[in-house]
Design a protein around this nucleic acid. Structure first.
Length: 586
RNA sequence: UGGCCCGUGGUGUAAUCGGCAACACACCAGGUUUUGGUCCUGGCGUUCCUGGUUCGAGUCCAGGCGGGCCAGCCA
């Protein structure tokens, strides 16, 4: 897991993966790298990087990019860098840098000493810009932003050259130096590459390399008042770091000719990386746009960047997702250039797959219904032995107290059972997991006819939930908690944050009404249940602990709302529920 | 009559040189089970269209059709 050439620190934030390393799926980028290595390019090694702009929190789409970049470097014994692309001080903040470092470590990657910042390269970038000016391949443009936009042309018509395009080299050098010296206000002048205003690729129509921005930078402070644009900074940063394969998403395809142009035209460039693009992740019912995520957070639609409904890494972590599950997900979705929409079910599958193997089983009743076992001695308490994880014998067993009054799930009882109903009903017998078999003898209702309590009898010969000697069978097994031992808890359940698979889908009618993508926010995405009762072994559960509530789903102790005297659980995912499917069909 | 990219089951992907379309998810039907979980078995396809080359095309060629991205001094 640790980066080659790194310090190999045992970072406490790195969560150990569980299952065996899955076989690596082949894909076109892996093939390219394999081929390059076989042909002896790059001295037989590869160097990749993950280059986030620190202006938001990392989300599942970033996890895909991280797994591709870092995973490939690991697989081929190469090296990987973390580079913060901090070229726009108006948007970037230190808090995002800090959060990103935590998230990437949590995912299980250690970049060691290879943490870099585009701002580290400002001096070198500036010097190369001067080289370009000297070569007659860059010039200072005095046009206003509006004029630059107008003369760029359109998708179908060529642009026109700036009147400043043929300025003498000396004048460009002087003006660029004075831009750097702070003589000019924001927006007054830019440095442009001198390429081709008639190119069908708009990125090649004399792209802006530097703009004047009198802005304090989180790292360089007031040292600079001109800042390089992405297109100029990115490829050259790759070159400086010796990146061999610069992997990015599809929308940069059109930028590749420009990426290559800088590399090929800067006289003293030390190294030429290769940019390769892949499709970014689209996940149904989820928001993967940093800008819109920021909006959801700022407008209070969600409870911060780590809201468990968000597919931010911090949100998913708080929700109970494991790094193993996320990395496995990134493996199974593959790497292609095809625009696609991945079903949420695939994500749920990978988290269940991991949690099934690793999480301890406990009993929790979300919606309690009181059951009095009339033939069980009053005041008696038995400690029943329960298996912690049937998938993992080493997880051992625990004692769960049983008494005369227990709570069962309200959904596990019905007065008029449908076909194939295995649960409790008047006169029916079921197994209380790890305890006894009980038979419902009476139903007690309030004045409005609501069932408020059940009366049952138990069979002492079924202790531990075992089959009785008479050979009786029972189909249903229910979870339960002893009323006097139960610990109250709050349980927060989540549904998709967006009702439509594409959160951006807005009808023309909605647009006409002035509505935007936020109409798709699901008003029922959060359900807070304050009535849950959990078994006493959970009383002191540590925040972050992941558990399976038997027959219900995977939950974790919330790290934000849990207090010493208040347990709060987040539902990570439900268990698959074939009965619910069957019942729905009728 | 702008450029670039992409089309394989419901979904995500695979298919060496042109050689029986494979895997996972989802769904459906069964089996096992002290979780209606897990696990096991089985079912589910005109490779966007048309034409061409070929003994043979998802793969090569031509022409269509459909989808995505690009006109920030954002990344």
């Amino acid at each position: 897991m640790s980066n080659n050439n790194s310090t190999g620190s045992d970072n406490p934030n790195v969560e150990n993966g569980t299952g065996p390393a899955p076989a690596r799926a082949s894909h076109f980028i892996r093939d390219i790298i394999q081929q390059d290595l076989e042909q002896g390019k790059h001295g037989g090694t590869i160097v990749t990087r993950f280059p986030p702009e620190p202006n938001a929190y990392l989300h599942l789409g970033h996890a895909k990019a991280i797994c591709i970049n870092y995973g490939l470097a690991e697989d081929f014994g190469g090296r990987y860098h973390l580079r913060f692309d901090d070229t726009n001080p108006t948007k970037e903040e230190q808090k995002y840098i800090d959060a990103m470092r935590v998230d990437i470590h949590w995912l299980g990657f250690d970049w060691g000493d290879h943490e870099y910042y585009a701002s580290d390269y400002f001096e070198q970038l500036y010097n190369w810009a001067v080289e370009l000016i000297e070569a007659g391949k860059a010039y200072v443009d005095d046009q206003t932003p509006e004029e630059i936009r107008e003369t760029r042309g359109t998708l179908k018509t060529p642009g026109t050259e700036s009147p400043y395009r043929n300025r003498p080299v000396e004048e460009n050098l002087d003006l660029f130096a004075r831009m750097k010296a702070g003589e000019f206000p924001n927006g007054s002048r830019v440095l442009r590459a001198r390429i081709d205003m008639t190119s069908p690729n708009l990125n090649m129509r004399d792209p802006v390399m530097y703009r004047v921005l009198h802005e304090k930078h989180p790292r360089t402070g007031e040292a600079w008042c001109i800042y390089p644009m992405y297109d100029y900074a990115h490829g050259q940063s790759d070159a400086i770091e010796g990146i061999t394969h610069s992997l990015c998403s599809l929308e940069f395809e059109d930028h590749r000719p420009l990426y290559d142009w800088f590399l090929n035209n800067i006289p003293s460039i030390p190294h030429k990386p290769r940019q390769i693009e892949f499709a970014r992740l689209n996940l149904a019912h989820a928001m993967m746009s940093k800008r819109k995520l920021l909006q959801l957070v700022n407008e209070g639609v969600v409870d911060g960047w780590d809201d468990p409904r968000l597919t931010t890494l911090s949100g998913m972590r708080r929700r109970g997702y494991t790094a193993t599950a996320i990395r496995r997900f990134c493996e199974v979705i593959g790497v292609t250039k095809t625009n696609s929409l991945t079903e949420f079910a695939l994500l749920e599958h990978t988290v269940r797959e991991d949690l099934n193997k690793t999480s301890a089983r406990v009993m929790a009743v979300l919606n309690p219904l009181k059951v009095v076992i009339e033939n069980y001695p009053e005041g008696q308490v038995e400690h029943m032995e329960a298996v912690n994880n049937p998938e993992d014998a080493s997880a051992g067993t625990r004692q769960v107290p049983f008494s005369r009054t227990v709570y069962i799930e309200r959904d596990d009882f019905t007065e008029d059972p449908p076909k194939k109903w295995f649960r409790l009903a008047p006169g029916r017998e079921v197994r209380l997991r790890a305890a006894y078999w009980v038979t419902c003898t009476d139903v007690i209702k309030d004045d409005d006819g609501n069932v408020v309590e059940l009366r049952c009898t138990y069979d002492p010969e079924t202790k531990g939930g075992n089959n009785p000697p008479d050979g009786r069978k029972v189909k249903g097994t229910l979870h339960w908690v002893s009323a006097e031992h139960a610990v109250p808890a709050e349980v927060r359940s989540y549904d998709h944050l967006f009702t439509s698979v594409y959160p951006d889908d807005v009808t023309d009618e909605q647009k006409a009404e002035g509505l935007d993508w936020k109409v798709n926010v699901n008003p029922d995405s959060l359900t807070v249940n304050g009535n849950a009762m959990v078994e006493p072994s959970l009383a002191d559960a540590e925040p972050g602990t992941r558990l399976q509530f038997e027959r219900i789903g995977y939950f974790c102790v919330d790290t934000k709302f849990t207090m010493p005297d208040k347990l709060v659980f987040n539902r990570t995912a439900t268990l698959r529920d074939t009965w619910a499917k069957q019942a729905k069909k009728g």
